[in-house]
Simulated assay, not measured.
Amino acid sequence: MSIGRRILLGTAVLVLAVIAVAALAPDLIAAQDPLRTDVRGALQAPSAVHPFGTDQSGRDVFSRVVHGAGRSVGIGLLATGLALALGLLFGTLAGIAPRPVDIVAMRITDVLLAFPEFLVALIVVAVLGPGPVNVAIAVTLAAVPVYVRMGRVQTRTLAVAEHVEAARILGVPPGRAFLRHVVPGVLGSLSVLATIGIGSSILAAAGLSFLGLGPAEPSPEWGLMLAGGRNVLGQAWWISVFPGAAITLTVVSATIVGRLLRARAEGRGS
């Protein structure tokens, strides 16, 4: 790996580490209560006391951004994990299914892939109703087709690999050979894909929250904070800019790590 890529990877990992600390232990970074209001201190510009300023209710934006990491990143991670599990299940089943079943499954997958993930998630939330749980379900269902297609391709490739054939020749039962040699390989490929998908899931969840379909006020959540500051952007830009920057840094960093991992897995990361 070149020096430039090492620096880029190190920076991305550092950003993700800070986000992880903010999500798991926000009080270590921001001690102020993200829900405490102070009407007299509303719309204060960034300062030493309030590094990211205050919002319309006088709440500390820095504290809300830090505490919002748990919700925003948590929804993205949950959706990605569920999508990976469902993609592994249905992708491997499609890979070993009879040809008619495989064709039907792939045509359904192709139809879903024809629509943008965010549009699919938006339709699902419109059916299920708003709320953080429904947002996670919607983002999961929107992302599943990508994992199903990848899982199916990897299953069909690994099923005829030399080491799998060798295991069968040595007398290993087909089912055991499949679980020991095919499924782990498929899971590895999907895990690399998931590192890129985390950023997309976080972005989709934030977009749904921005539209008012995710967590409700006064919960600190990045997309919701973006929406809360859009009407006073000219007067108090910091209300939307800082949560927007948090979303951007998280998504870009996750994408960088995912792409570099994929390049290494494909033998292009040296």
Rank of each mutant, 00 (worst) to 15 (best):
residue 163 H to M: 04
residue 252 V to R: 05
residue 33 D to W: 13
residue 58 G to N: 04
residue 75 I to E: 01
residue 128 L to V: 11
residue 247 I to N: 08
residue 70 G to W: 11
residue 235 Q to T: 13
residue 96 I to N: 06
residue 48 A to M: 05
residue 64 R to S: 00
residue 207 G to M: 08
residue 16 L to G: 12
residue 268 R to K: 13
residue 67 H to I: 03
residue 56 Q to S: 08
residue 12 A to K: 13
residue 253 S to R: 10
residue 117 E to Q: 10
residue 148 V to A: 05
residue 93 L to Q: 11
residue 177 A to P: 04
residue 55 D to I: 08
residue 208 L to N: 03
residue 36 R to F: 02
residue 192 V to P: 15
residue 153 V to D: 13
residue 155 T to R: 13
residue 52 F to V: 00
residue 84 L to V: 15
residue 244 G to A: 12
residue 31 A to E: 14
residue 10 G to F: 14
residue 8 L to E: 15
residue 46 P to Y: 00
residue 15 V to D: 06
residue 243 P to C: 07
residue 237 W to K: 00
residue 252 V to Q: 10
residue 249 L to W: 02
residue 259 R to T: 14
residue 255 T to R: 03
residue 164 V to E: 11
residue 236 A to S: 03
residue 189 S to E: 14
residue 81 G to R: 14
residue 152 R to D: 11
residue 67 H to N: 12
residue 254 A to V: 07
residue 154 Q to K: 13
residue 28 L to A: 14
residue 33 D to P: 12
residue 169 I to C: 10
residue 204 A to M: 03
residue 255 T to S: 14
residue 200 S to A: 10
residue 183 V to R: 11
residue 136 A to E: 01
residue 127 V to Y: 09
residue 67 H to E: 02
residue 239 I to F: 05
residue 225 M to S: 11
residue 211 L to M: 00
residue 176 R to D: 11
residue 231 N to R: 07
